[in-house]
């Protein structure tokens, strides 16, 4: 199908974009990469009266470090992030997760800001941001808010963004050099949305787990942390037996929704298998 008619606005600065968003409050959508928004418009699931195309807002695609944070502009493209040496160095979990994200034509256009604003529960990046305790910076004509990733994703394709707000930056704490990481996913085809995915970071101090973060995607209405599993790992020697117990705990603690390609029991099995793989790979990368 074809999208419904709309008024097209192409701001040349962030301020202009925020003013337009304020002026058309509730009737406008921000167009970044368009890889989620335009399908929904073509399917007439969305018919915004106004489209604010931010693709020519200068500087909104920057990838940089700022103190102890990797800072990704909302308009940074998946292709750029996937190949970025700054991302590889400071958030290797994101780099690994990008192995599973979409296909090249989609990655060439799609943006991190757009991906998280869409908040598909089977998408990889929300799990990465939840696992790394990232902060989402959102702006409106009235000012700025900083929202923890765990509070940003509030439900199925729902975020904490309020009318008139847009994501401008994603701030990810720089990964310590001794931290291990892994991202494991099962999908029906390479590049498809995850049936289940596990992202993990681990820190070992003398063989004992001193930090663990494990996030799951593709299970329920949003990416979530498996906090009971993290508590099980922390302050214990990270041997194979502990990892197997953690994987069994993952199986029982996820709350999967049944989907066309994977029913609840299968998703629980996937959670177990992927958790084991992710924790073993992350452990092997700990320094």
């Amino acid at each position: 199908m074809k999208p419904a008619a709309f008024e097209y606005v192409r701001p040349g600065s962030l301020n202009e974009a925020l003013q337009a968003l304020s002026r058309h409050a509730g009737n406008a959508k921000i167009l970044a990469g368009g890889q989620s928004l335009v399908p929904m418009m073509n399917l007439r699931m969305l018919h915004p009266a106004v489209i604010i195309d931010i693709n020519r807002v200068p500087g909104l695609d920057a990838i940089r470090t700022d103190g102890d944070a990797l800072v990704v502009g909302a308009l940074a493209r998946h292709s750029t992030l996937r190949d970025s040496p700054i991302v590889a160095k400071h958030c290797p979990l994101m780099r690994e997760a990008y192995r599973y994200v979409a296909h090249k034509p989609i990655r060439n256009r799609g943006t991190l800001g757009g991906n998280i604003s869409h908040a598909d529960p089977a998408s990889e990046m929300p799990a990465v941001l939840v696992a790394t305790d990232a902060t989402i910076v959102v702006k409106s004509a009235k000012g700025e808010r900083k929202i923890a990733a765990a509070n940003f994703f509030i439900g199925l394709m729902q975020t904490a963004l309020q009318t008139g707000e847009m994501v401008t930056e994603i701030r990810i704490p720089i990964a310590p050099a001794n931290q291990g990481w892994a991202f494991e996913e099962a999908a029906n085809r390479k590049g498809d949305f995850a049936m289940a995915a596990i992202g993990a970071t681990l820190t070992l101090t003398g063989g004992v787990c001193s930090q663990a973060a494990v996030a799951v995607a593709g299970m329920s209405d949003r990416a979530t942390r498996l906090s009971a599993l993290e508590a099980l790992l922390e302050r214990k020697p990270l041997d194979d037996d502990l990892i197997m117990r953690a994987a069994v705990l993952a199986k029982s603690s996820v709350k999967p929704d049944s989907s066309y390609h994977a029913d609840v029991d299968f998703k629980r099995d996937l959670a177990e298998a992927l958790t084991e793989r992710a924790l073993k790979n992350a452990r092997a990368r700990c320094k």
Binding site: Y8, L31, G34, Q35, V38, P39, N42, I51, D53, K104, P105, I106, N108, R109
Partner: peptide, 8 residues
């Protein structure tokens, strides 16, 4: 490479 159905 770009999906021409997802670009106005």
């Amino acid at each position: 490479s770009t999906r021409a159905c997802l670009l106005f």
